[in-house]
């Protein structure tokens, strides 16, 4: 018995220790720090209670970052999930008639997912350059006025959102394709016999409900990635112009690693962590309740 207990402990111990030391402990430290005015390198700190949280939700800059992130997510989540589904439906549909084309397009759509986002951001920066960029040249060719995609305060967040959608559609498409492949073909036969004529009825009677679990998973993954938006902001705009593209994770980075305000950055981290935890909890609750068919 003792021998078994020792073996169990030896097997579980290292991983458990690593989890505690590298995950639980830092989280606890961050939570503690979020109630202080600690700065990196400082020798002492004061307790400020909920002061950092009040700053985040109360200050114009903090609220701005939160709202920007929400707007960004509100665009990216539906657009990326919707387009991913649309592309998957299209590619699934043509997979029987022109399998080669379908395979090539699949790879093309997936390319942005596989590529390094930072490198892609540089490419986008060139495409979106106000005078030399291809986008504005095309617009000029079409007789449309050119835009300051990354330096117009009213536009920059939407530009970043569009790039976010471009980057995540391929991943969602792959998940939806897997979901579509798992739908038993006899269900479509059953629907046809039951009177579902045309693609629209077939979609609502079979495809959409059968994709339920996939859709939910895709939504959660996309949401988590949207709230985490950082690379494009950091490489293309640094939150600017005038904080118009400042997002919560970029603010975290700026406050923590540029201004070394560890206490404030910790508060942002805790809020961010809580939001993702909530998202995951919703996922588990909904998955267990609604989308499980068995």
């Amino acid at each position: 018995m003792l021998r078994r207990a020792v073996i169990d402990l030896v097997l579980v111990g290292p991983a458990a220790l690593a989890l505690v030391v590298f995950i639980f402990l830092p989280v606890a430290v961050v939570v503690v720090l979020s109630f202080t005015d600690y700065q990196f390198g400082a020798t002492r700190f004061e307790w400020v209670g909920l002061g950092n949280y009040a700053d985040l939700f109360g200050s114009r800059l903090g609220r701005n970052a939160l709202i920007n992130t929400l707007v960004y997510a509100a665009i990216v989540i539906p657009a990326s999930v919707g387009l991913g589904l649309l592309v998957a439906l299209g590619l699934h549909g043509i997979a029987h008639t022109v399998p080669r084309v379908s395979a090539v397009l699949r790879a093309v759509y997936f390319l942005p997912v596989a590529a390094t986002l930072v490198a892609m951001a540089v490419a986008w920066q060139m495409l979106l350059h106000p005078s030399l960029g291809l986008v504005n040249q095309w617009l000029a060719g079409l007789g449309l006025p050119s835009r300051q995609w990354l330096s117009d305060r009213g536009l920059v967040l939407y530009t970043l959102a569009a790039i976010g959608v471009w980057q995540s559609v391929g991943y969602n498409m792959v998940l939806f394709l897997a979901g579509l492949a798992a739908i038993p073909p006899t269900l479509y036969d059953a629907a046809a016999v039951d009177g579902a004529e045309g693609g629209w009825s077939r979609f609502w009677v079979v495809t959409w409900p059968m994709l339920g679990p996939t859709t939910l998973f895709v939504m959660i993954v996309t949401a988590a990635n949207a709230f985490r938006v950082f690379e494009t902001v950091a490489t293309m705009t640094q939150g600017g112009p005038a904080f118009a593209s400042d997002t919560i994770v970029y603010a975290l980075y700026r406050e923590g690693f540029v201004y070394f305000k560890a206490g404030y950055a910790s508060a942002i981290t805790v809020v961010f962590f809580a939001a993702l935890l909530l998202l995951t909890a919703i996922q588990i609750a909904v998955v267990e309740r609604r989308v499980h068919y068995r």
């Binding site: 006899t186 036969d189 059953a190 046809a192 016999v193 039951d194 409900p209 059968m210 068995r294």
Partner: peptide, 21 residues
């Protein structure tokens, strides 16, 4: 004519019930 227009009832070997309903 489509399956619906023929109004033929069909019972599938796998039953093909809608699992979410």
């Amino acid at each position: 004519d489509t399956a619906a227009a023929r109004n033929v009832a069909l019972m599938f070997q796998s039953y093909a019930l809608y699992p979410h309903l």
